[in-house]
Structures are given as C-alpha cells and as structure tokens.
Amino acid sequence: MAQVRVTVDGVNYADDVEPRTLLVHYLRERLGKTGTLVGCDTSNCGACTVHLNGQSVKSCSVLAVQADGGEVLTIEGLARDGKLHPMQEAFNEHHALQCGYCTPGMIMQAVDLLGDNPDPDEREVREGIEGNLCRCTGYQNIVRAVQSAAQKMKPGAAADTPAPASVAGGGN
C-alpha cells in the first residue's frame, strides 16, 4: 500500500491504495466519482479525461500514487455554484452528445484545449480532441460546441446576465 493525498473537485482526500491503482479507478471506486468513465484499456478513447494540476490527462494512464500531492478536476467539479461551465452549456445547446459516454472526457479535454488556444479554428478543434473517441455524433456538433464555447468564454464576451455596473465595460 502507498499513501496518496490528493484534492479532487475541491475536496482533500488521503487514502492508502495499492500502487497499481489507476487514477480513474481511485476516482470511481474509492471516491465515488463515477462521472468519469472508462472506455478502453489502451489510452485511446479519452473517456476518462480529467485535469491533473491544470492539465488534461487520461486518468487510466496515471497511477493514483503519481497524482499524490496533486489537484484533480473532474466533470463533476466543473460546474461552479450550481452554474454550468460554458462548455457544458455549449454541449447541450449544440447537441454535442448522444449516449453521453464520451462526454465527460470530451468536455474536460475541450476545456483544456481552450486554455491553450482560446479561439481555435475547426481544424484546431478537431486535432485538439483527437485523443477522445465518440461513436455517436460524428464529432460535428462537438466541434460546433467547442467553437461556440470559445466565443462565449472570450474575455469581454456577452455573458448570460449583465455584469454588475461596477465592472461593466472592464473588458479585461
């Protein structure tokens, strides 16, 4: 057994795990974070994508012990204060999911992609999510959703609700 201390979706955990425990199994089976899914055993499908220390990773390809001391964000922690992340909203608005199985990983990867490239063109989106397989959508609406979220997330983009007067027009 080895000890792992990790923060997941804002909560601190300390657990003894077998060193062979994959991060995704730790999340699902020890922490009950079953929103993160397993779709393959060769690191291809990306369904298990989470953020580790601010970067997207396939949580089947990280040992839980390797995440020791780290911070993990899963699909379950993406919405803040009951408000969906713009990427989640965009997936809904653009019908970017059908069975939903690739969706958690796809959204987490898409969020990461926009962190590196806030305004990707179609090709850049397609290449940015090439590590995430979807069998339902043909990807077209996923690409639309990611580009739409990018526009909404741009600094100064019109938010759903008007910003308070004190900061309106700040634009940063």
């Binding site: 690191s43 990306g46 994508t49 970067q55 997207s56 990773v57 396939k58 390809s61 990280v62 990867q109 990461d112 992609l113 940015g128 090439e130 590590g131 995430n132």
Partner: peptide, 9 residues
Amino acid sequence: VADNQVRHR
C-alpha cells in the same frame, strides 16, 4: 505524438 492528454504526461 499521440494526443494532447498524452503530450501533457
């Protein structure tokens, strides 16, 4: 090489 997630690790 591979994809974004793999390139992170």
